[in-house]
């Protein structure tokens, strides 16, 4: 376990299937969805669709977007913004990969924690 002021280690990249997602609950804060694209890049968004709060982690990942399982809104994994005709935005949480492990930015992950 690596203690670091800015980044939190949340485990190895292989825990995520390609084109899949996992959830990361934050005690006292909001749940985060971690995604992996076909090219292996990792992204994190608040696990709440801007439309009706659907769990984005359960959607289908394609290219760099995820389609919400509730009403098929497409959300960009890069910007958190709804794509196409829909309007809305969900917070993006910065992540990085180092030596095969995923690190999530502490301050953003804990945003809203009281």
């Amino acid at each position: 376990m690596m203690a670091d002021a800015r980044w939190i280690d949340i485990g190895p990249v292989e825990q995520l299937p390609a084109l899949g997602a996992r959830t990361l609950p934050v005690q006292g804060g909001q749940e985060i969805a971690i995604f992996r694209t076909a090219t292996g890049s990792i992204h994190a968004l608040a696990n709440k669709c801007p439309h009706k709060a659907g769990p984005l982690s359960q959607g289908i990942v394609h290219d760099t977007s995820v389609t919400c399982p509730l009403h098929n809104w497409r959300i960009s994994l890069l910007t958190g913004e709804a794509l196409g005709e829909d309007k809305g935005c969900v917070p993006v949480i910065p992540v990085k990969i180092d030596a095969g492990r995923i690190y999530i930015e502490r301050a953003s992950a804990l945003a809203g924690v009281v």
């Binding site: 949340i10 899949g20 996992r22 990361l24």
Partner: peptide, 19 residues
């Protein structure tokens, strides 16, 4: 099994436990 488990959990002010 991974579909039903969190990747990890963040507990602010306490130690993090990767799944």
């Amino acid at each position: 099994g991974h579909l039903h488990k969190h990747i990890a959990e963040i507990r602010p002010f306490s130690v993090l436990e990767p799944a």
